[in-house]
Amino acid sequence: MGQNFQLVVVSAGTSDPSSTRLLADRVAGRVTTLAGKRAQTVGTSVIELRELASEIANALVSNHIGPKLQKAIATLQHADAIVASTPVYKAGASGLFTSFFQILDNDLLIAKPVVLAATAGTARHALVVDDQMRGLFAYLRTVVVPTALFASTEDWQDNGLNKRIDRAALELVALMTSGFEKTVRDESWGSYQHEYGSAGGTELTIDLDSDLMRLAAGGASS
C-alpha cells in the first residue's frame, strides 16, 4: 500500500500562465510520476501569490492575515513537500515571493522538503536561488534539495533544464518519502522555538512546568 502525499506549489509568477508557474508545474509533474513508480500517490495544490498580493501587503503593514492568506497558510501547514518558484527581478527573488515567506510563522515549515526554482530573462541571475533564496529557507528550517532550478530564456530550449528538473524532483521524492519531516516533528518539535499560537495558529502547547510559569504563579525568578 502506497502513501498519499500532499505537494504544494507556491508560485510568484505574475502572468497566467507564467513561465515561473510552468517551471514549478514541471517539477510537480515529475514528482508525481517518480512517486507513482514507487507506488505512492501525490496530490498537488497550488498557491498563486498574485491572487494574494493585496492580503500579503496588508499583512506586512498591519499584521492582519486575510482569509485567502489564512487558507494558503493552512495548505502549507499540511504540505508534505513544497515547490517554491519565483521570477527574478533586479538580481533578487520577487518581493511578492519573499514577502509571503516573511509573513509566515517561523515554525510553520520546519523540516519540510522544498525545491527552489526561479525564472529570469537573463542567465546573469543564475545564482539568485543558491545565494539568496536558500538563506530564507534555511531560516525557516526547511530542507532544500541540493539541485536548485533556474531557467532563463535560453534554458527553455535546452534539454539540460529537463535533466535538472528530474534531479530536483527525485531529490524531493527521496526526502518526502523518507519520513524526515515526521521524525523531526514527532521527536524534536519542542526543541525549536515556538510562540503561543504560532505554526499558523496550531502551536497551542502550554508548558505549565517552565521557569516562567512558576514565576507567574508567585514563584521566584530563576
Binding site: 510562540e195 503561543y196 499560537g197 502550554i206 505549565l208 516562567l212 510559569m213 514565576l215 507567574a216 504563579a217 508567585g218
Partner: peptide
Amino acid sequence: IRTPEIAEQAAFY
C-alpha cells in the same frame, strides 16, 4: 493577547 504566562498569573491570583 498571546502570552499564556500572563493568563496564568491572572488566574493564579
